[in-house]
């Protein structure tokens, strides 16, 4: 028993953190899709080989597992990196290996960008530059279509998160459909896990920003962080975050170990990480006052990303319903659709 990241996990985390610190400051998040900054970020990440994180070493990948995925995505969340990394790094490897193995090598090299639309909403996050879209597989059931969108007609929808680059496609070409239940389940689980870890990173960033703010912002002649009302907001925020962190780590471990009962850990991870981001985000905005309620200040970048991710890969309510089914006391009436 050892409940802590391995040295290998920590090293990988440090390398990814360095690249994101250098290449993904808030200006990059603001610059958005198609910008030179985001292209440079994508290139730097490709240079790390993280696209092959979950690809076996025999196939040219790093041969790592979901424990590492958690470490990497917490960093991605902390930086609010505006790239479709959940789909490309977490979901695509298993799906391509099953449905389009000839594309796997290109993915590992970093030459393939993949988007995902598990809930079949017609929108793909960070979608304007992707080569492939993985559609379907919500809840780990059904089938996942691998779509080539390189020649498709593109439309953009406004999003709650301005950096989200929500993109629709018409006239995509079906490359393959994957209906192996094991693969569809694994793709879903990895998407849920990566998103949960990303929410942890986003929460941490919002809390760091806020702590810095309340320690320096003075009102009534003292830092506002010395007021008990502010302290209690942020203590509650930290509580939510600190109890979501180990839950996401457990889900990573159970997925890496392929434990048969892992549904419960995954549901708990996404539900508590979503709630943590929500609570931290509310406290962060409140403690920033009017300064936070502007788009000139950076908080909104992280806040809006967290809103987008709370509603992606199953909401907290959806995952609680999934847990209840597994516990044998499932909901009796209308259940959350996504």
């Amino acid at each position: 028993m050892r409940f802590a990241p391995s040295d290998e996990q920590r090293e990988l985390e440090a390398v990814v953190r360095q690249v994101l610190t250098d290449r993904c400051p808030p200006q990059t998040v603001r610059a958005g899709a198609g910008s030179a900054q985001v292209a440079a970020l994508a290139e730097s990440l490709a240079g790390l080989g993280v696209a092959g994180l979950l690809v076996a070493e025999d196939d040219g990948g790093l041969g790592l597992d979901e424990n590492h995925l958690v470490s990497v995505f917490a960093q991605i969340g902390y930086a609010a990196a505006p790239l479709p990394l959940t789909a490309t790094l977490a979901v695509a490897p298993a799906v391509l290996a099953a449905g389009a193995p000839d594309l796997l090598a290109k993915l590992v090299e970093g030459g393939l960008t993949v988007g995902a639309d598990p809930a079949e909403t017609g929108h793909v996050a960070f979608g304007s530059g992707v080569d492939l879209v993985l559609r379907g597989g919500f809840g780990g059931t059904g089938r996942i279509e691998i779509l080539d969108v390189s020649d498709a007609a593109v439309s953009t929808s406004p999003s709650v998160d301005v950096a989200l680059d929500l993109t629709g496609y018409a006239g995509a070409r079906l490359v393959a459909a994957v209906d192996d239940p094991q693969v569809v389940r694994l793709a879903w689980e990895r998407g849920v896990l990566a998103t949960s870890a990303e929410l942890i990173g986003l929460s941490r960033r919002m809390l760091d920003l806020t702590v810095e703010h309340v320690r320096t912002r003075e009102q009534f002649g003292v830092p506002i962080g010395s007021f008990q009302a502010v302290k209690h907001h942020l203590a509650t925020a930290l509580l939510h975050l600190e109890f979501a962190v180990p839950v996401v780590a457990t889900a990573g471990f159970e997925l890496a170990a392929g434990l048969p009962g892992r549904l419960r850990a995954l549901a708990t991870a996404k539900a508590l990480a979503s709630e943590a981001a929500h609570v931290v985000g509310r406290a962060a905005l409140q403690c920033h006052g009017a300064i936070g309620y502007t788009t000139e200040y950076d908080l909104h970048l992280f806040l809006k990303r967290s809103w987008a991710l709370e509603s992606s890969w199953g909401s907290a309510a959806w995952h609680r319903a999934a847990l209840l089914d597994d516990l044998g006391v499932g909901l009796t009436g209308v259940r959350p659709a996504s």
């Binding site: 600190e242 109890f243 180990p246 549901a267 539900a271 609680r320 319903a321 209840l324 006391v329 909901l331």
Partner: peptide, 19 residues
Amino acid sequence: RDRVARSWMQAHAYQQFTL
């Protein structure tokens, strides 16, 4: 039932935090 799920999740979060 939704609240039951919340408590179940929190009890397990407490266990994992402790580990």
